[in-house]
Simulated scan of single mutants.
Amino acid sequence: MVKWIIAAEIAFWVVIIAGLFARYVLKSKKISILLFLLTPLIDLALIMLTVVDLRNGATATIAHGISVIYIGVSIAYGKSMIDWADHKFQSWFLKKPSSKKILVGLEKGIYELKMLARHVFSYLIGSAIFWLIINYVGSNGTDAIIGVWKTWSVVLIIDGIISLSYLVFPKRTESK
């Protein structure tokens, strides 16, 4: 299962880089959009492989749980990951100056809350998929998946505390 997660992650970034190459080097926005639209199909393939593997009798492992997290994160953060890659591609390969503003104070707090909302969204998607898989394949031998879900729950709580701290203790100036 680990090899499928690694393959999906590699495929995701290859498609993103190919989409950026098509957009900026080949000057074809249509091809780049088509390539970017492949990313959800990669996610769908990974979740299908996870379900098939478990349905065929494999005992759930941490890798199965990570594949579910991967799907939730990819859906919730997909656009922002593509935006990040787009910005980096322009900066590194097209040598365009960075226009990214460093956030401080209330702006940083609001940004962190938005990121927390994405994390909650990815968690809800992942949780739904976890429980659908467990109900579909049966709960026998799915302790590892439940363990991954519990760990993710703790990570979400920690992320919430950290994100809220940016509002309670705002950073006043940019550190150098």
Rank of each mutant, 00 (worst) to 15 (best):
M1W: 10
M1Q: 08
V2G: 13
K3W: 09
K3F: 05
W4T: 13
I5M: 06
I6A: 12
E9G: 13
E9T: 13
I10V: 15
A11S: 15
F12A: 02
W13V: 12
V14I: 15
V15D: 00
V15I: 15
I16S: 07
I16N: 08
I17Y: 09
I17Q: 09
G19S: 13
R23P: 02
V25P: 08
L26S: 09
L26V: 10
K27Q: 06
I31F: 05
L34M: 07
L35W: 09
L37V: 10
L37C: 10
L41R: 04
L41S: 03
L41T: 04
A45C: 06
A45L: 11
L46H: 03
L46I: 11
I47K: 07
M48T: 09
M48L: 11
V52E: 09
L54I: 04
N56V: 04
A58V: 08
T59I: 12
A60T: 15
T61D: 03
T61R: 06
G65D: 01
G65R: 04
G65N: 01
I66H: 02
S67H: 06
Y70Q: 11
Y70K: 14
Y70S: 08
G72R: 04
S74E: 00
S74V: 03
I75W: 07
I75F: 12
I75N: 02
A76L: 08
Y77R: 05
K79H: 02
K79W: 06
S80G: 05
S80E: 10
S80N: 13
M81N: 09
D83Y: 12
D83S: 14
D86H: 11
K88N: 12
K88C: 05
K88F: 07
K88I: 14
F89L: 11
Q90D: 06
Q90H: 04
S91V: 04
W92A: 12
W92L: 15
F93P: 09
L94I: 07
K96H: 06
P97W: 00
P97L: 01
P97N: 06
S98T: 15
L106D: 04
K108T: 00
G109Q: 08
I110S: 01
Y111G: 01
L113Q: 05
L113V: 10
L113D: 02
K114V: 04
M115H: 09
R118W: 06
F121Q: 01
F121H: 02
F121D: 00
I125V: 13
G126S: 12
F130N: 07
F130V: 13
W131R: 11
W131P: 10
I133R: 00
I133Y: 00
I133C: 00
I133P: 03
I134F: 00
I134N: 00
N135V: 08
N135D: 01
Y136E: 12
Y136V: 15
V137P: 03
N140V: 14
G141Y: 01
G141I: 06
G141D: 03
D143W: 04
I146A: 00
W149N: 05
K150P: 02
K150N: 08
W152T: 10
S153P: 07
V155L: 14
D159S: 13
G160P: 10
I161L: 14
I162D: 03
I162Q: 02
S163V: 10
Y166I: 12
L167N: 05
L167T: 10
V168F: 14
P170L: 03
K171H: 05
K171T: 07
K171G: 03
S175T: 13
K176M: 09
K176D: 06
